[in-house]
Nucleic acid binder design. Structure first.
Lengths: 182, 182
DNA sequence: ATGGTTTTGTTGATTTATGAACAAGACGCG
DNA sequence: CGCGTCTTGTTCATAAATCAACAAAACCAT
């Protein structure tokens, strides 16, 4: 990964933080470019050096998290199911503000929830047990859809309810259930 | 006040925060320019665009706070003694990390405590009651030194003991006592 | 002391961010 | 509808920050 200029990282980070913060206060469509610039303490014009418009910014923000999530997937696949999900839930916890905002907001363009589901289903593809024969009579479609929605559903519930269990605990339970399903 | 460029404000702020943070972890002399740059997430060379060296940086940091303190003094002099100190103690609270670090560190060049005392004594000069005659037989020297060290002493105690009373409460009590002294 | 390593200041070429200004759109309200 | 105001996207010249490289100090263990 070519190391990016410090300034770029800083302003993009500030902008993303600003958007997340503002989304907790008002609807995305009510947020103005100037709002974002002010909150990020950045010149309004600077935003256009990095993004097309606020929708593009939100899009990139979402994309960033989805990318980080499936980068985690690559080294997590070496663990068994009970432990594999721990880093994920720790990630959700660390970025609580982002996920709760995104899962809450109805107007998040291209609905975040949908993209999250797609990403997880993609990630699950390689994890289906085709050896033991326990899934012989089940088709990929059904399996992925089942496990994917279940996973997203649990995350949604956990986040919206203020993370009632520590990451490790939910992760282990969900890991067990996912292991059974796939 | 000529408005400074956003970038300048940001890097200077980051640098000052970095110094404060680092001073809680190690002695000032052990802090390297690179440490500061790293913590502030700024290029090492950038530091030299603003300061001579780390001592200059620390100096400017102190100066900044002393300036803000005596700017507060100007509009605070319209209040009576019981209320006049409230904004000060709120300021100490807000910048708790700075003051506790500064008052603790023995090696703070030019000893912060001394500069603080000088600033307060200077500020008290105009507040001595020369009308009622109650101070007729007292000389400025004695009065200023007495009140000044008392004030600094209280602040030191309050900060070092983790601010055992809310700012308002200490401020009022100290205000009363200072009023009697001057 | 001495040789190796770290830290310090400085430099120069380059990239990014800034502020201010502008025209064109969108918005709301009387 | 039309008018004023706010928002958008873009431009330009300029200022600040970056990275990499360098020589000189300062530091430290042998």
């Amino acid at each position: 990964m070519a190391k990016v200029d410090r300034r770029i990282a800083k302003t993009q980070d500030a902008l993303k933080q600003a958007v997340i913060g503002l989304m907790t206060e008002k609807k995305f469509d009510d947020i103005t470019i100037q709002d974002i610039a002010d909150r990020a303490n950045v010149n309004r014009g600077t935003i256009y050096l990095h993004y097309q418009d606020k929708y593009d910014l939100l899009d990139k923000l979402i994309e960033m998290h989805l990318n980080e999530l499936d980068e985690m997937g690559e080294w997590a696949c070496e663990l068994d199911w009970t432990d594999a999900l721990i880093p994920y839930f720790e990630y959700f916890e660390k970025n609580y503000l982002f996920f709760s905002t995104m899962l809450a907001s109805k107007e998040a363009p291209l609905t975040f929830r949908t993209r999250l589901l797609a990403a997880f289903m993609e990630g699950f593809k390689g994890e289906i047990d085709r050896d033991s024969g326990k899934n012989a009579e089940l088709s990929d479609d059904v399996l992925l859809q089942y496990a994917g929605t279940a996973y997203v559903g649990i995350i949604e519930w956990w986040i919206k309810n203020g993370m009632p269990y520590p990451p490790r605990d939910v992760a282990k339970q969900v890991g067990t259930l996912l292991g059974r399903s796939l």
